[in-house]
Computed example of a mutant assay.
Amino acid sequence: MTRVFCIGELLIDFVAENQGSNLSKATNFTKKAGGAPANVACAIAKLGGKSSFIGCVGKDAFGSFLLDVLKNEGVDISMAQRSKTFTTLAFVSIAEDGERDFVFDRGADEELKYDPSIKSEFKKNILHFGAATALLGGSLEKAYGHYLFDGLCNESFIAFDPNYRSDLWTDDEATFIKKCLPFVEKSHLCKFSLEEALLLSGKENVEEACAFLHDIGADIITVTLGKDGTFVSTNNIKHTVPSIVVSPVDTTGAGDAFIGCLLFQIAALSNFETIFNDSATLLKMVEKANKAGAITTTKFGAIVALPDLNQLEEA
Rank of each mutant, 00 (worst) to 15 (best):
E17I: 14
K119N: 15
D68S: 15
E99T: 15
T88S: 14
W169K: 10
A211Y: 02
E195W: 03
G229H: 08
L136C: 09
I275G: 03
L283Q: 12
K32R: 12
A134K: 06
E173K: 14
A143K: 07
G74T: 01
E73S: 11
H128P: 07
L213N: 06
A268R: 11
G55Q: 08
S156V: 06
L70K: 04
E155C: 07
A305Y: 01
M285E: 06
E208F: 01
A33Q: 03
D161E: 07
I221L: 13
V249H: 10
E121S: 14
S93P: 08
R106Y: 04
S270C: 09
F258Y: 13
T222C: 15
K71P: 04
K227W: 00
A61S: 12
R106M: 12
E73K: 11
S64P: 07
T230R: 03
A218H: 02
K178L: 11
E208S: 15
V57S: 06
E314Y: 14
V103Y: 13
K291V: 09
E9N: 02
F29G: 07
K71A: 15
D109E: 09
T251P: 01
G58F: 04
V92H: 09
F276C: 08
N22H: 14
K84F: 14
A134G: 12
T251E: 00
F272S: 13
A16F: 00
G217V: 09
A41Q: 05
L152K: 14
S52T: 15
S193H: 04
D101L: 08
D167R: 15
L283C: 12
T88E: 01
I12H: 04
A26D: 02
L312N: 00
I77M: 00
K25F: 15
A95L: 02
F122N: 01
Q265C: 05
S78L: 05
K32D: 00
A43S: 15
G260V: 00
K227V: 11
G74L: 05
L127V: 07
V245E: 15
G217T: 06
L112T: 09
